[in-house]
Design a protein around this nucleic acid. Structure first.
Length: 271
DNA sequence: CAACGGACCTGCCTGC
DNA sequence: TGCAGGCAGGTCCGTT
């Protein structure tokens, strides 16, 4: 479910409710996530204070002073701030109970997410260390995409969805950014020009930033930290618009399932 | 090393 | 109505 804008929306939603708060306890109802939640985690977290929140790609980081909690929402995860007496529902696998009447509740039906804790530098975890630049940082631009794509035969869409190339771009925003840049998702990455990569990098930044301003994209079940849906779905130009007219030229939006993920594009606007 | 497919899960929708 | 099949916002890992 969540790509970078949804994770950032979640971070912004929970931040004012959790920063400065002390962890009373961690309740793990079902620790069978992507990697099992370590049994010692509740003991390690109790009494620690949340100093700040941050994000790297689609990973959410809670700085606890002594260590860092690293949370990923997988395909179906969400985090919400709730009152402590709110009864848990199905798939509410983890509660971070805070002093003062609130808790941070993690729901993840598919259990593709994770809760990890490290006392070292979280950015040096193998999971995070190989991530490419943050798309909203100065380190990410068309030159970067051009350099890392030479001689590659994967499609340009698969290239920008590779987290080691650029962090946080998933299927929705890859489709949207390629449309905005006028680049066909099916082109081989190594054959895309420098000028097209300049447009694509700009489009990626633009679409992510705009979606964050809209609170992310809610297609089915995404909610931010305060339970609110995101409103970017109404601005999608190609994603899940198969058979509908292109908003720019009127041509029919095409869907291809020949790639691992559904790929939408306008055959007239994107070359 | 790059590229690909399978794997991990549940829910929801479609079509027979 | 039931059930099989396909699909969904992610991404690691093993095999070519």
């Amino acid at each position: 479910m969540p790509e970078l804008p949804e994770v950032e929306t979640t971070r912004r939603g929970i931040d004012p409710h959790v920063v400065g708060r002390t962890i009373e306890r961690l309740t793990v109802r079902d620790g069978r996530l992507r990697w099992p939640v370590e049994p010692a985690l509740p003991r390690k977290l109790a009494g620690l204070r949340i100093a700040s929140t941050s994000r790297r790609g689609k990973y959410l980081l809670l700085d606890l002073g002594r260590g860092t909690l690293v949370i990923h929402l997988g395909m179906s995860g969400s985090l919400r701030v709730l009152r402590k007496d709110e009864p848990p529902r199905s798939h509410d696998h983890v509660d971070l109970v805070l002093e003062g009447g609130t808790l941070l509740r993690y729901r993840d039906p598919r259990r593709f997410g994770c809760w990890l804790y490290t006392e070292g530098d979280p950015l040096e975890l193998p999971l995070l260390a190989h991530l490419g630049p943050e798309p909203l940082s100065a380190a990410f631009d068309g030159g970067h995409l051009f350099r890392v794509s030479r001689r590659k035969i994967v499609s340009v869409k698969n290239l920008v969805m590779d987290a080691s190339i650029v962090a946080g771009v998933g299927n929705i925003y890859a489709n949207e950014a390629l449309f905005m840049a006028g680049v066909s998702p099916h082109r081989k990455a190594g054959r895309v020009t420098r000028a097209a990569y300049d447009r694509l990098a700009a489009a990626i930044r633009e679409v992510l930033a705009l979606s964050i301003r809209r609170g992310g994209t809610t297609l089915r079940d995404f909610v931010g930290g305060e339970g609110e849906p995101g409103y970017f779905a109404q601005e999608l130009r190609v994603y899940e618009r198969e058979g509908e007219p292109c908003k720019a030229c009127g041509a029919t939006i095409k869907l291809s399932r020949r790639e691992p993920r559904s790929t939408y594009h306008c055959p007239r606007c994107q070359r």
